Computed example of a mutant assay.
Amino acid sequence: MNDYATSFNREINGKPITVDDIKYFAKIEHQRTFKDTDKQVKENQPFATKILQLKTDIRKIENHQLDGNIKKMKSQISKLESEAPNQQNGKRIVQGIKKSR
């Protein structure tokens, strides 16, 4: 820690920084999840948008607000899920899922 403190090459009130001036904190993560800023989530976003639109259309068909083939749409969703570039344990990586170790 002495070397770490001297590597700052700075002074506090005219005195060089010492070990007593530095506070070091560490965070231990027991459970890590993907955030919306992670590269994998961003790359999967176009697929997530299309999947969400298809799910919305399926709900509209079920409520008789739209005409369409639900079976075909569910097939498209499955295809998009498998085509997403970033997968973990066979599932598309989305915000909030646990990261594997």
Rank of each mutant, 00 (worst) to 15 (best):
M1C: 12
D3M: 12
D3I: 15
A5M: 09
A5N: 09
A5C: 08
A5E: 10
T6R: 09
S7N: 13
S7T: 08
F8L: 13
N9W: 14
R10G: 13
E11V: 09
I12W: 03
N13R: 10
G14E: 07
K15F: 10
P16C: 10
I17P: 04
I17N: 11
I17H: 13
V19D: 05
K23E: 14
F25C: 14
K27V: 06
I28M: 09
I28A: 07
E29A: 10
H30G: 07
R32E: 09
T33V: 07
T33A: 12
F34M: 11
T37S: 11
T37I: 07
Q40Y: 01
Q40V: 01
E43S: 03
N44I: 01
F47A: 00
T49C: 04
T49K: 14
K50Y: 02
K50G: 00
L52K: 15
Q53I: 06
L54V: 01
K55T: 01
T56C: 06
T56A: 10
T56K: 07
T56S: 09
I58R: 11
I61H: 04
E62W: 07
N63L: 06
N63Q: 12
H64Q: 15
L66R: 11
D67T: 15
D67S: 14
D67F: 10
D67K: 11
K71C: 08
K72P: 01
K72C: 06
M73R: 06
K74W: 10
K74E: 13
K74R: 15
S75C: 02
S78F: 07
K79D: 10
K79L: 13
S82E: 05
S82P: 02
E83N: 10
P85S: 03
P85I: 10
Q87W: 07
N89M: 05
N89L: 08
K91S: 07
R92D: 02
I93M: 00
I93R: 01
V94K: 02
K98N: 12
R101K: 14
